[in-house]
Structures are given as structure tokens and as C-alpha cells.
Amino acid sequence: MGRYVARRLLQMIPVFIGSTFLIFSMMFALPGDPVKALFGEQHIDPVQVAQIKQNLGLDQPFMVQYWDYLTGLFQGDFGTQIASQRPVADVIADAFPVTVRLALFSFVFLVAVGIPLGVIAGLRPNTVTDRTLLFVALLLVSVPSFVLGYFAQYVFAFQLGWTEPNVQDSTNYGQLLLPAIVLAALSLAYVTRLTRTSVAENLRADYVRTAIAKGLPRHRVIGVHLVRNSMIPVVTFLGVEIGTLMAGAVVTEGVFNVQGVGRTVFQALIRREGSTVVGIVTLLVLVYLAASLIVDLLYAVLDPRIRYA
């Protein structure tokens, strides 16, 4: 098992290099000149543009630029932003904690609400409870997140006055609650549906019948035998979801004024801040990789038949 984990971690290195190369070349291929854009809709001084490019090494051919970036990266240097002249590492350090907090918060919400709802529906398939939950889930899936966001803002902040409409302070979990729930709402439906189907199916499995026949108490049958075995598809989904929650929150971040990764990468892309985009996206790739490793390991915990060597 230890060897397996080590091997998987080592495998991340080529993926890391490959993904930086891919993203770097994509950024390079995009039309548009970040240095020229600094001048905006005003006078542009071509000599000054050339000088700035030379200073930043942007006049070099692609492979040289990539090599410089990579060697810098291995010395812990993520590069410098073109416009703000701040180290990209600082920019990442500003945005990541905010996003991690928001993503984990909505992830906890997802697990704590989605799985129990799925189990409830799955234990009584095709009853009124099941159908009501299905209806709510479908409703949440079909509403775009900005509609849900503005609606939540309107109801909870302006009508009821329970909370601030925007996140003023990203360390305040009370303010993060609304965006976290909105962010989780979409995936909530998937988690609930997946859990429900899996539970409903396993309800008829042999080992559940055996457990009941052994005379085990109901909570043990459900808790240990049924739910644990039904978690495999759900865990697979949740593993991917943690990455999506981090990277894909651009819209929700915009509605609730969360200065997170999604916004940062979006803005960097618009401004052609190559090193910022490569840095953040690479980190997100690593988050995905780490999440999928955890998911694979969780399989072994959930299902005794799966082993790694």
C-alpha cells in the first residue's frame, strides 16, 4: 500500500511537467500582446513596449521562455506578473486560501446534506419522499448558478436580512455560507441521485439479505453494510467535484464578491498573464490528481475486495 501511494505520487511529476508545457504553449499561441494592452486605449510607445518585453524575456522564442519558466519553477519561482509586477506566488497565495475555504465549506455541505438525502430516498424508492427529493434535485440542477446566486442574495440578504449580500471578509464563515450553499446546490442533485440509485440497488444485494438474516440491527445493516458499499460511485463523483468546486466557481465568485482562484485565473487569462495562468492551472491539475488518488485509496477502505500493492 505504501509503495502504491509513493508510485502514484511520483507519477504526478511527469503529469506536472506535461501540463505546464501544454498550458504554457496554449497561452503562447493565444493572440494578443499583454505588454501592449497595458497601455489601454491611449497612446502606445512601441520602443517602450520592446524594452519592457526584453526585460521580461517575452521577446525570446517559445522554448527558451518555457525553459526559463520551468527552471524558475524548480527553484520555487512562479514568475512575476507583467502588469502588477508582483510575484505570481503571492497572487496564488492570496487567492488559494479563499477558494480552499469556500470549496471545502461547500464540499462539507454537499456531503452532509447530499448523502443523507440520497440514503433516505434510496431506502424508500418510488415513494412520495423519493419523488419529492428527485423533483427538488432536478430543479436545482436546471437553475443556472447566477440566477440562484442573485435569488439567494435577494431573499436572504435584502428581504430577510439574515446575512450580508457579499463576502466582505473571506475568513468569516458566516458570510461564506451563502456562496458555499449556492456553489454546492448544483452538485447536490448529482450526489443525492447517485447515492439514491446506488442504495436502492444494493438494498436487494445478497450481502444485505445475509446481514438481515443474521439478525443484525437495522442501523448496522444500513450504516455498515449498505451505505458503505453504496458509496463507491458517490466517492468517485465527489473526488472530481472537489477540483470543479475550486476551479469552476467563477460565476458564483463573481456574484458574491469572492476573490478566489476562479476569478484570478479568468482575469489573468483576459490580461494574458501567462505565468499566472500556468501557475494556477497547474496547481489545479495537481489538486485533481491528488483527489483522484484519494478516491482510489478510498475504494480500498469502502470495499474490502479492492486491494493495492
Partner: peptide, 8 residues
Amino acid sequence: TACGGGDG
């Protein structure tokens, strides 16, 4: 991945 939940 340098995101150990560190606080800003």
C-alpha cells in the same frame, strides 16, 4: 500542492 488550508 501548497494548499494545506493555510490561512491568508
